[in-house]
């Protein structure tokens, strides 16, 4: 999730700017062709920053199936445009529907892949970057804690699911009503663990003089370099070009 060391030469803030630009485009753009271009740019940028894109896609494949299914459903129920596939007079896939479905998938892919760029920065650097931007340290610190503890929670969820299945539960053979009850049971160890952990964490944090003063010093301070300005400049410029082009063809 986080980089082992912070030898990375780019300031996390330039990465944040880049990711914000790319994801704003993902949200604002409507045109599938332009979004594909943005996805290509984001993908290249992610690889340039050393993101394991294939790994991310592999982990997200179940979610992607879900979005693909949503795209098909969108396409079925959205009338308009040419009818591409019809069955007994009922139009199944229309051009407008297909277009919407595809843009949903593109949007998700762009956001997920570009967000991978932030995870190449050490969470400490992200905190420090946000802090130097004037965001209160408490909030920045909470963000870092969340990044740090999400993988632990995932491990725990896996253990819980394994434990209940090892006790003889065949989840896919259980009727829906009972399955809901079981899911509600499974939440219990998770919730209790999160509560317990956060209480212990809060104590440990406070006992190391957290919020002793309104100010704090920073052992490591971040310095923007030429490369960072180049990355941010390029990101902002490219975003402006995309938005302008989209405006010219009236699809924004």
């Amino acid at each position: 999730m986080t980089a082992e060391t912070s030898t990375d030469q780019f300031d996390p803030r330039s990465k944040l700017v880049l990711v914000m630009c790319i994801s704003s485009l993902a949200v604002l753009l409507q045109d599938a062709v332009m979004m594909t271009a943005v996805l290509a740019c984001g993908w290249l940028a992610a690889i340039a920053f050393g993101v394991d894109v294939a790994g991310i896609l592999l982990r997200l494949r179940k979610l992607l199936y879900l979005f693909a299914a949503m795209a098909v459903i969108q396409s079925i129920f959205t009338p308009g445009g040419e009818v591409l596939v019809s069955l007994g007079g009922v139009s199944l896939v229309t051009s407008v529907g297909l277009d919407r479905g595809v843009t949903i998938i593109l949007r998700v892919l762009i956001i997920v892949i570009s967000a991978g760029i932030v995870t190449t920065a050490s969470s400490r650097d992200v905190v420090q970057g946000l802090y130097q931007w004037g965001i209160p340290y408490e909030i920045a610190f909470m963000v870092a804690l969340a990044i740090r503890f999400l993988p632990l929670l995932r491990q725990e969820a896996e253990d819980v699911l394994t434990a209940v299945q090892l006790r003889g539960l065949k989840l896919d053979e259980v009727p829906l009503g009972q399955r809901l009850q079981i899911y509600s049971y499974l939440l219990m160890p998770m919730v209790s663990s999160v509560l317990g952990k956060s209480q212990k964490l809060a104590i440990a944090v406070e006992m190391r003089a957290f919020r002793a003063h309104d100010q704090r010093t920073s052992y490591r301070s971040l310095q923007m370099h030429g490369g960072d300005y180049a990355v941010m400049g390029a990101a902002v410029a490219a975003t402006a070009v995309f938005l302008l082009a989209a405006w010219r063809i009236g699809r924004i």
Binding site: D159, V160, A163, V164, Q165, L166, L169, K170, Y185, S192
Partner: peptide
């Protein structure tokens, strides 16, 4: 073998018992 099938042959006790307690 599914985990459920294994479970009828082999019981596994996790290091943290609270991870395998669910019911009210």
């Amino acid at each position: 073998m599914s985990l459920a099938e294994i479970g009828s042959e082999v019981g596994y006790l996790f290091q943290q018992p609270q991870r395998q307690l669910f019911a009210p």
